[in-house]
Design a protein around this nucleic acid. Structure first.
Length: 489
RNA sequence: GGCGGCGUAGCCAAGCGGCUAAGGCAGCGGUCUGCAAAACCGUUAUUCACCGGUUCAAAUCCGGUCGCCGCCUCCA
């Protein structure tokens, strides 16, 4: 069984056949470091984190490169506004990015190159393009001549004529063709500069990815990824630069994920409707965010709302509750008890891994994969619930191995990595800490209520129960007495 | 204007030619309980925006209509 991925370039699902058997070279466009990351960036990081985890789980040896763009117009502008240097600004937000990723438990990429560390390779590519007549100098700038690259527009599926018709192109008299784009920009006073054959300047926006991918992965590599908004012009231009310079194919597959929206509109700085990762993490744990992201296929728009985040909270609690119940099973089995799980149930659970793999192999369908996991949880809960106090060994073994399978599969999405009992305990402690009540006070009230119940004073008993419930303490009257827990969510 | 995507139950969301249209949330019913809560179980679309067409067979393919969104300018 092969992993099939949707390739933007062909617009269809294609079996993944790496250049080199068992090895995958992946390049993902990372952030431009001039501000805190919003949850759209989080989706990007999480999606590729999942893809890398899953491919490795499937036995591939993955080389994962994710760059930082640490010099460009926005960085220069922002640095000037903040009266700092571009280096300081970029460094600050790269640091913030790493903090965010650590909190999201997104593993670092194998290589995290920065544009400013690769200026020599950038210059080399531009020289090659100049030598081949694909680029030209105009004043202190160097532009790529799109007319000279016949397949320009192939990735985004548009022709130069179509784009000209768009007519939203800024006038630049230096350009031979309005669609030409800068490879090198001559520096203005006060801007950071590097020496080059075309005078002091800095790289254009797209060239750094061509240079860094080439240096770390070679002229041709397997997968190039990023957000859908990068298809044009960024990735289109990367192809033109890289293939123009090397004469060899660039990325073999293109993966683009959808946006995070709010009220069905794309999250963006200009609309002012964006939420930073750190803002969201103040309200929701990272794992909730992960479940939220993976509940939808990566190419589909993902609408952020309190309601959907709350659903993710409930879903995660359900998964951990199932695992915690299984973990709490007695260590020794009963010899006399008959197994509770039916053959049908056992069969269904046994098929979980296969069904999950099929879903994930099909263009990383995490939503379907999670559906299968929840489906298995339902079956496991049913079995758990019907278990006698001293369960049969067959049932215990089935439940334990199933829980292990679920943990492993969910792990490809970075989910269910916590110890289930600890997860629930920690969550309760956290909420308890936020409440102005302590365990002693609760115990006192429970004691009082028990006396009231013994006296059949139901009114008083209910009053105490409601009083505690108002403070998110739920009482559970069981055969061995009353226990309490913090109401989750 | 050009190009692309989407429209599946109250909500979120899989399914993309053929078994009963996954799963989650919410709702409802049940087990439990003094009554509850929690937990768990069960249940919730004869139908997939609308209209035609292709096919033995369509939510799934084709054409049209309506609605929403994105890219074409910096953007994950």
């Amino acid at each position: 069984m092969k992993v099939v991925i949707y390739d933007t370039k062909t617009g269809s699902k294609t079996p993944l056949e790496p250049m080199e058997e068992g090895r995958i070279k992946l390049y993902v466009c990372g952030i431009t470091a001039y501000d805190y990351c919003h949850i759209g960036h989080a989706r990007s990081a999480l999606v590729f984190d999942m893809i890398v985890r899953y491919l490795r789980y499937r036995g591939y040896q993955v080389t994962y490169v994710r760059n930082f763009t640490d010099i460009d117009d926005k960085i220069i502008k922002r640095a000037q506004e903040q009266e700092t240097t571009t280096e300081e600004l970029a460094e600050r937000f790269i640091h913030a990015f790493h903090e965010d990723m650590a909190r999201l438990k997104v593993a670092p990429a194998d290589h995290e190159p920065r544009a400013t560390e690769h200026i020599p390779s950038i210059i080399r590519i531009i020289e090659e393009l100049m030598a081949k007549g694909l680029a030209y100098q105009a004043d202190n700038d160097v532009y790529f001549a799109v007319d000279k690259f016949p397949s320009y527009g192939a990735l985004s599926g548009r022709s130069l004529d179509d784009m000209m018709a768009g007519a939203r192109i800024s006038v630049n008299e230096n350009k031979h063709n309005p669609m030409d784009f800068a490879l090198w920009k001559g520096s203005k006073p006060g801007e950071p500069t590097w020496e080059s054959p075309w005078g002091p300047g800095r790289p254009g926006w797209h060239i750094e990815c061509s240079a860094m991918s080439r240096e770390l992965l070679g002229n041709t590599f397997d997968i190039h990824g990023g957000g859908k908004d990068l298809i044009f012009p960024h990735h289109e231009n990367e192809i033109a630069q890289s293939e123009g310079a090397s004469g060899e194919p660039f990325a073999r597959y293109w993966i683009h994920h959808g946006f995070v929206t709010i009220k069905d509109e794309k999250m963006s700085k200009s609309l002012g409707n964006f939420l930073t990762i750190r803002e969201v993490l103040e309200h929701y744990p990272a794992e909730v965010l992960r479940l939220f992201v993976f509940s939808t296929h990566y190419r589909t728009p993902l609408d952020y709302s309190e309601a959907t985040l709350q659903e993710a909270v409930a879903g995660l609690d359900r998964l951990y509750a199932c695992l915690a119940a299984i973990a709490a099973l007695p260590a020794t089995a009963s010899d006399s008890a008959a197994p509770v799980a039916s053959a049908k149930e056992a069969k269904k659970i046994a098929s979980l891994a296969d069904r999950f793999h099929t879903a994930m192999d099909n263009d990383f369908n995490t939503a379907q994969g999670l559906g299968h996991i929840f489906d298995a949880v339902k079956t496991l809960n049913r079995i758990s619930q019907n278990l006698p106090a001293a369960p049969a060994g067959a049932d215990i073994a089935l439940l334990r191995s199933s829980a292990a399978t679920i943990t492993t599969l969910a792990g490809t999405m970075g989910l269910l990595g916590e110890d289930p009992a600890c997860y629930i305990e920690a969550k309760q402690q956290k909420i308890l800490a936020e409440l102005d009540i302590d365990a002693t006070a609760i115990a006192g009230l429970i004691e009082e209520r028990s006396r009231a119940r013994d006296a059949r004073d139901w009114a008083r008993a209910d009053e105490i129960r409601n009083q505690l419930l108002a403070r998110r303490i739920e009482l559970k009257d069981g055969p061995t007495g009353t226990t309490w827990q913090v109401k989750l969510t």
